[in-house]
Design a protein around this nucleic acid. Structure first.
Lengths: 143, 143, 143, 143
DNA sequence: GTGGTCTAGACCACA
DNA sequence: GTGGTCTAGACCACA
């Protein structure tokens, strides 16, 4: 069961944080089609945010076609965003685990790690921008 | 000069995006103490957000001790967040560039890449949580 | 409930006046941890300044760790600045009440009274400056 | 010669700080009719603010009838705000010096001291408000 | 209902 | 010219 963590004070709206964390779990395959999301009540208990806020996030994801709200039953994943390359035994995932460990062991904070990756993404995308015109989702995804 | 990209519709407030991008540049050493940030007018020209929104971001960073707003002169970096491990010729940076290239070449989107890294960070931090009690900045940094 | 008075035309920004008055109340113990500040709407009704201006003041105080803004609930004091020496039954407070009464009865205006105290502070601090190097908050507090 | 101290970051405009400090000196008798204020150039050297800012303050005080700007000569005090009760050998001044010393020795900061005095003024003025209707300058002076 | 973001626009402070 | 304050007003986030 996905375990949401809300960072009040990050400036990012709570419902956006729920959506982001859900999408990440979908991409990682942690959450699969048919899986049940926690009830609003459960999220409230874990995060101290208001049930309406949770429902707002779930409703947004329903409109995006990711989940389905079934009255009286719960909220269920209806679409996968999983990538075979992101599976837990993939070499890509092994490698990033090694790299992250190295970075953290060297004293870098989570934010440093994410800054490094974002910078690397920017470099890659700039280089492949004019070359690969089909690659339109680049920059906009995580500006 | 840092070049802000605002993703309207990400749900993340524009002023938060400016702060996040500035902090990333500080961590990467792209922005150094004494550097001038773009004027509110320049950001407006580049991003079509309102000058007040830019100033809100700059003011928040001033209160955080990162920059100084000098009337009539501009806004200047006053504190470094740079890490030697994040320098452009560091092995860590080389490695992440390689890994990102592989991931993107395999067809993963930016969001997939960031999801993989975040998941790796979570795994690492969970493993080192109870072991390394000084490591208190974990989860909260990027919930 | 604290009752803000805005002196338009003093040249001091309205949001600064709100912060100053709040901090004074915190120092005096008039406002304690957990107390609720008036809502932006209430301040607007009482002072005829714009809600955004009130929120600017509250936000600044939140970043200073003095209060917490809770959406939908209100703004609450989170830190005390109270000094036991400033309690209402302290001899110090008795004495200053006597002195102020004498000064006012002698025809001095509020500004005269504050000028006298500021001058006395300057004299004291100059005398104890080089002597007490730990006393670094002197002059800067109220220039 | 009066020695201005500008607290950048207090939120109070620099020219207002100059006026406030000048008025305090006038009330205390530190500055008397005929005295010369420092030249803009001198203030700039001491405070690192722009000469125009100093001139703005001087011009405002000229319009208030406190000083006179004589081209090529300097700026001179033309009106006294001094009160006999505030003279350096007055009992009122002795007393406040004692009280301030006590308060500071007890560990109170400048801001605590000023908060105590302001609170005492508020109490006094509230009590004498309805009683002494001629006392119209009360609250407004230092809101 | 309470706070939060953002805008357009006026006007001010400072260099 | 650059930042700073304030406003009125629209709309959103959260309780």
């Amino acid at each position: 069961m996905i375990d949401y963590r809300i960072d009040r004070g990050s400036g990012v709206p709570a419902y956006v944080q729920i959506i982001e964390q859900t999408e990440r779990a979908l991409r990682m395959g942690t959450l699969r089609v048919g899986d049940k999301l926690p009830t609003a009540r459960e999220v409230v208990a874990a995060t101290a945010i208001n049930p309406n806020t949770v429902l707002r996030a779930y409703r947004d994801m329903e409109q995006a076609g990711l989940v389905e709200l079934r009255r009286g039953l719960g909220t269920f994943v209806t679409r996968s965003l999983a990538r075979p390359e992101a599976e837990s035994d993939s070499p890509l995932r092994q490698k990033v685990a090694d790299w992250v460990a190295r970075a953290r062991d060297a004293g870098l904070e989570r934010a440093d790690v994410l800054a490094l990756v974002t910078a690397a993404l920017d470099v890659y995308d700039n280089e492949h921008d004019s070359t690969t015109p089909g690659d339109r989702e680049r920059k906009k995804e995580n500006a």
